[in-house]
C-alpha cells in the first residue's frame, strides 16, 4: 500500500521495447538508479516480437526530467524504443494476490466485499480468504484499503503493465512505425 509520500508524488509511465538479452534488465535499472530516478514499479515480459521484451516502468517525476530519463534509456544499445505513455489514454492493469484475515467469522463479509471489486476468491482457509484481483493500480489500492480493515496477512503485486488505447497511440506491431514518427517529430531526437 502507498505511503503518504507516495500518494503525493506524480508518476510517469513508460514502455520500453528491449532486446531479450541477459543483463538488459540490470542495465535499465542501473541507468535509472545512477541518474537518480526512483522506480515505483517495473514489469518485464515477452512482446509480440520474438527476441524483444517489453517493460512497463513507472518512475517518479514528470516533464523535462522524464524526457532526460527517456533519452538516457535510449542510449542503452539494447533499448529499441522508449515510449512515455503518461499523457496517453491507456489500459493500466496489475495483478495482486492478497491473503486477508478472516478471523472473527468475517469470511463471508470478505467474500461479498471482494465481489464488489471484481476480485476472485482463489483460496479459503479456516481463518483467511485469499483473493486475486486484476485491475488498475488505483482500484487495487482501493481494494487493499478495504482489505486492510480485516487485516492483510500477505500481499504480492506484479507491478503495472500498460498499453495505449486505439491504434494511433497504440504500440502494437502495426502502429510502432507511426508512433516512432510522432516521437521523432516531437523532439527530433529519435
Amino acid at each position: 500500500m502507498l505511503s503518504q509520500r507516495e500518494q503525493s508524488i506524480q508518476y510517469s509511465t513508460m514502455v520500453l521495447l528491449v532486446e531479450d538479452h541477459p543483463g538488459v534488465l540490470t542495465k535499465v535499472s542501473m541507468v535509472l538508479r545512477r541518474r537518480g530516478f526512483n522506480i515505483a514499479s517495473l514489469s518485464v515480459g515477452h512482446s509480440e516480437q520474438p527476441g524483444v521484451s517489453r517493460m512497463t516502468i513507472v518512475v517518479e517525476g514528470t516533464g523535462p526530467r522524464i524526457k532526460q530519463c527517456e533519452k538516457q534509456l535510449y542510449k542503452l544499445i539494447e533499448v529499441l524504443n522508449v515510449y512515455d505513455l503518461t499523457e496517453y489514454d491507456r489500459v493500466d492493469k496489475e495483478l495482486a494476490i492478497v491473503r486477508i484475515s478472516g478471523q472473527g467469522g468475517k469470511r463471508a463479509e470478505i467474500t461479498s466485499a471482494a465481489q464488489a471489486f471484481d476480485a476472485e476468491v482463489v483460496d479459503l482457509g479456516k481463518d483467511y480468504v485469499t483473493c486475486q484481483i486484476t485491475a488498475s493500480p488505483y482500484s487495487i489500492e482501493r481494494f487493499l484499503e478495504m482489505a486492510s480493515d480485516f487485516g492483510i496477512m500477505e500481499l504480492t503485486r506484479t507491478g503495472v503493465v500498460t498499453m495505449a488505447r486505439g491504434r494511433k497511440a497504440g504500440l502494437g506491431a502495426q502502429s510502432v512505425e507511426q508512433t516512432e514518427k510522432e516521437v521523432t517529430s516531437q523532439d527530433g531526437t529519435l
Partner: peptide, 13 residues
Amino acid sequence: PAEIEKVVQTDVP
C-alpha cells in the same frame, strides 16, 4: 540527443 537540454534550455537544438 541526451546532451540536448540536459543542462540548459536551447533555442535551436
